[in-house]
Design a protein around this nucleic acid. Structure first.
Lengths: 157, 157
DNA sequence: ATAAAAATCACCCGAAAGTATGAAGGGGAA
DNA sequence: TTCCCCTTCATACTTTCGGGTGATTTTTAT
């Protein structure tokens, strides 16, 4: 029960003790002042220092922390609601399969063959086969060319 | 010249004046104390109050504010069939140079580094250096990612 | 004028991409 | 059923890319 009381009023007790200590210190300084009465200025100086520190401490403890908020606007660019429609005519003309189109889309998103394989749960070799067929059918040499052409003819957004 | 000096040392002068005022106040209080010598405690109390306030004021002035950064994501929708306008803000923000932008554009057209070099009349090594810097600045790993991001943020059509 | 940034080129190494070839199972069309 | 295409996977080999480092020259900015 006693320890409970102490625990619950820990902060108050702390402040109380601190205040007590301060008063004691003042008393002691006054005593010194009385004994050696040629140190009035030192006494005043001590008071000044102590209460300055007290003020600083009070301000630190009691004021709500100063918060400076910096707001940074990060601009996200997004495609407008111009709904993409797949050019199925071209898709059929080139003879590109569903799976190949999937690979092509992921390619355009910047994924590596390895990442595409992980995304589609197939092996790297399979992705390579798909991409090879894509390049063949689209008559291009590189994935970047495939992406460029696919966007141009409306195979991907 | 005089006003210039004042302007430049405004803060210092302010603090100096404040200190002077404080000393005057103390002197005045001491004077009162001498006249009515029964108010020693009042004098000490005044000192205490003044320096406590000084401490509080100091703490208020000198504590560095906690900086809180809030990033607000602002989504910008580009006009559907609007003519392409280079996003110079992003270009400057990423620190991409003219030459690097050229390389980026040719990349997006599907050219290999070798072909880009031939197009720009520079060596393959130079193109590699440019592309490496591009990837660094755009924080991407591959040319396909660079192309995707460049299109998204409006660096290329 | 002098420092900073951009552009140029080179070399090396490892990773990723691309080419070639073969193979096997599933599904639809003739 | 047979044939063809799709999908899957593998191995082997070549080319291209990307990372790292360093250096020289030109342009730009202070």
């Amino acid at each position: 029960m006693g320890s409970n009381f102490i625990a619950r009023n820990k902060t108050n007790l702390f402040y109380g003790l601190l205040l007590g200590l301060l008063l004691f210190l003042l008393n002691w300084l006054e005593f010194r002042f009385v004994i050696f009465d040629h140190s009035f200025e030192i006494y005043i100086g001590a008071i000044a220092v102590i209460f300055t520190l007290l003020g600083i401490w009070l301000a630190m403890k009691l004021t709500s922390p100063k918060v400076e908020t910096i707001i940074i606007e990060k601009i996200l660019y997004a495609e407008p609601n111009a709904a993409f429609v797949l050019n199925e005519k071209e898709l059929a003309a080139l003879g590109i399969s569903k799976r190949e189109l999937e690979v092509l889309q992921l390619m355009a998103e910047g994924l590596s063959n390895q990442e595409i394989g992980e995304r589609l749960f197939v092996s790297l070799n399979t992705v390579k086969t798909h991409s090879a067929r894509i390049f063949e059918k689209m008559e291009v040499q590189r994935r970047t060319q495939a992406i460029e052409k696919a966007k141009r003819i409306g195979l991907i957004p």
